Simulated assay, not measured.
Amino acid sequence: MDDLTGFQRDLLYVIAGADRPSGQDIKDEIEGYYSSEINHGRLYPNLDTLVTNELVEKGQLDRRTNYYAITNDGEQVIEDRRAWKSQYVD
């Protein structure tokens, strides 16, 4: 997780907390947290990085819509982050 940006880490958490969300679902959720619009040029390259790093799996819901699902490696990254963070914050 040390090589992920904060935004990528936030995307990973959103994906982990949902059941195969679409890119639009992820965008809507992350915009609620960031309180600003997230453009496609920021969202999708970062999702692709998570897929490339095998932390997220990308599949197709229909011809126009992809879904994203956390992998076992992605779940492990989140657990490792929680363990590291708990050393400093309750």
Score class of each variant (00 low, 15 high):
residue 33 Y to I: 14
residue 57 E to F: 08
residue 31 E to F: 02
residue 38 I to W: 05
residue 36 S to C: 03
residue 2 D to S: 14
residue 29 E to L: 05
residue 37 E to D: 11
residue 48 D to S: 14
residue 86 S to T: 14
residue 78 I to V: 13
residue 6 G to K: 05
residue 86 S to C: 05
residue 70 I to R: 04
residue 12 L to W: 10
residue 39 N to P: 08
residue 6 G to H: 05
residue 81 R to A: 15
residue 46 N to D: 15
residue 71 T to W: 02
residue 86 S to R: 13
residue 38 I to T: 03
residue 37 E to W: 02
residue 66 N to S: 14
residue 6 G to D: 10
residue 18 A to D: 04
residue 23 G to L: 09
residue 78 I to D: 08
residue 70 I to G: 00
residue 35 S to M: 06
residue 72 N to M: 07
residue 2 D to I: 06
residue 82 R to M: 14
residue 72 N to W: 03
residue 83 A to T: 08
residue 49 T to R: 14
residue 6 G to L: 14
residue 35 S to V: 05
residue 59 G to T: 11
residue 23 G to S: 13
residue 47 L to V: 15
residue 41 G to E: 03
residue 89 V to Q: 08
residue 10 D to S: 13
residue 64 R to D: 07
residue 42 R to P: 00
residue 4 L to P: 09
residue 4 L to I: 02
residue 72 N to A: 15
residue 76 Q to V: 11
residue 20 R to L: 01
residue 8 Q to E: 14
residue 84 W to V: 10
residue 73 D to L: 15
residue 54 E to W: 06
residue 17 G to F: 00
residue 48 D to Q: 15
residue 71 T to E: 02
residue 55 L to A: 08
residue 85 K to G: 10
residue 12 L to D: 11
residue 54 E to M: 10
residue 90 D to Q: 04
residue 69 A to Y: 01
residue 27 K to H: 03
residue 18 A to Q: 15
residue 70 I to A: 03
residue 6 G to N: 11
residue 81 R to Y: 08
residue 75 E to Y: 07
residue 3 D to A: 11
residue 7 F to M: 01
residue 81 R to S: 09
residue 3 D to L: 10
residue 22 S to Y: 02
